[in-house]
Simulated assay, not measured.
Amino acid sequence: MARSQGVNQDLSNLLNELWKLDVNRLKPGRDYRLGLQGKAGYVAQGSNDARDSAKLPLFSFVNEAKLRSIKTYNSFMNLLDNYEMSTGSPETVTAEELAEDSNFLDAILQTSVMKRAHEYLVSKHQSPSDLKSFKNQLFDIWFRLYHRERSGGEDSCGFEHVFVGETRDSKELIGFHNWVQFYLQEKLKNVDYKGYKAVGNKNTPDEDDHVLNLQFSWKDLVKPLGTSFIGVSPEFEVAVYTIIFLMSNDKKTSVIVNVDEYQLELVVCRHGHAIGTSYPKLLSNNHQHR
């Protein structure tokens, strides 16, 4: 599954299946509302100086009671405060945090999305059919700690990087590709949304788009361009990135897919036997109001 310029049709078919199975995806306009506001400006490499093209938050409303009532979101949110923000600071994992990791994996493994992903990976001889062994495999990919920085102890894991976000040398914001974390940090006033980034010849995204290119700062460190799925469930993201990770041995895998109305480039980088980073890049959007 190395990089190709063309669309990977097999993977597109599978991801569209997962998309349809994602019953926990929130509905834009009903479960949450976005205020996209202005188009983000250019940020020089290494700079944390960004023009603010959005005076208001990105999320004007999220039905948090609904989030808390869905087991996968609730167990996911319990994990977001388990990590040190800075790489190079060793992570200390408590028994309680390990139990939270386990609860989250148990919750997502009960969903149709992860059941289908598991079935597919077993058929491709990438995952064990036994559920307990598959859960252990997921733990190693997402939660096993490793060294991201050479100095210090084990300071990072796939889950922390992709879903929570990290800082490097207190100067650079890395990872942070999840909309729930974005919303919660924005509510705490730690995240400042700066505006959207347009794609191709489409100048303005739509407020019910499920994939957006964003510019924002987190505790004053700027992410010049971060792409996130919006409204999708944690199990959908874990399923997608796990499949791409296990179907390729490359250090960096980049694959183009058509999912729903979006053409995406999905990028997964490995860090040994774990995920180093994974994120979508929005290439185009054939938006039709439905």
Rank of each mutant, 00 (worst) to 15 (best):
M1P: 02
A2D: 09
S4C: 10
S12A: 06
L18H: 02
G29H: 04
Y32G: 04
Y32K: 02
R33M: 10
L34D: 05
Q37I: 05
Q45F: 09
N48H: 09
R51E: 13
P57C: 12
L67R: 02
T72D: 04
N78Q: 05
D81L: 07
D81E: 14
G88A: 07
P90M: 10
L98Y: 14
S102G: 00
A107F: 08
V113E: 03
R116M: 06
A117Y: 00
E119C: 02
Y120Q: 06
Y120R: 07
V122F: 03
Q126K: 15
Q126M: 15
S127Y: 02
S127E: 00
P128S: 11
D130S: 12
F134D: 00
Q137S: 08
R144Y: 13
R148G: 05
S151E: 15
R168K: 14
D169C: 03
K171M: 09
E172L: 15
G175V: 05
G175H: 05
H177E: 00
H177F: 06
N178P: 02
V180D: 01
Q181T: 15
F182T: 00
Q185N: 14
K187R: 14
V191W: 02
V191L: 10
Y193A: 04
P205C: 15
E207H: 10
L214T: 02
L214D: 07
F216Y: 14
S217P: 01
D220N: 15
L221H: 10
L225H: 13
F229Y: 10
G231R: 07
P234A: 11
Y241T: 09
M247Q: 14
I256Q: 06
V259M: 14
E261N: 12
V267D: 06
V268L: 00
V268A: 00
C269K: 07
G272E: 11
I275E: 01
G276M: 11
L283F: 03
S284I: 00
N286C: 05
Q288L: 14
